[in-house]
């Protein structure tokens, strides 16, 4: 069942992104930035965790989960410790993805040539 919801929710998020690009003439970068912001905002109401429970990868793969995870881990650490831990928690869970992406991108740049 979560497979179906992954398709529907994931597709819907991409559809919203496409409509923003086509109707408001935004650049893809504008859209990804606003999605990260919205993902972070939804954490305020604790909504994003519910969407992930429902749709799994449908909510984890879109870039909005990036904002969610960052906010989530920041708050988690801050609640355990002091307010200062908020800053320590920002990259706590996403760091594996970011570091991995950087390394892979670096390796790819060593192997591949631009194709044009």
């Amino acid at each position: 069942m979560s497979i179906l919801f992954a398709f529907l929710i994931g597709g819907l998020i991409c559809l919203i992104g496409q409509l923003l690009v086509d109707l408001l003439k935004l650049q893809p970068v504008h859209v990804t930035v606003s999605f990260v912001f919205v993902g972070s905002l939804l954490e305020l109401f604790g909504l994003y965790d519910n969407i992930i429970k429902l749709a799994g990868a449908g909510a984890l793969l879109p870039i909005s989960s990036f904002g969610h995870t960052m906010t989530h881990s920041a708050v988690e650490l801050a609640v355990k410790g002091s307010y200062l831990d908020l800053f320590g928690g920002v990259f706590q869970q996403t760091s594996s993805g970011i570091a991995y992406a950087i390394v892979i991108a670096f390796i790819c740049s060593l192997i591949f040539k631009p194709k044009g």
Partner: peptide, 24 residues
Amino acid sequence: ILKNSIYAFVIGGLVCLVGEVIRL
């Protein structure tokens, strides 16, 4: 707009579907 939206929905959805299958 219509064509782009359908492509974005279906392909974006399929990417997430594959992701969910891998996760499961």
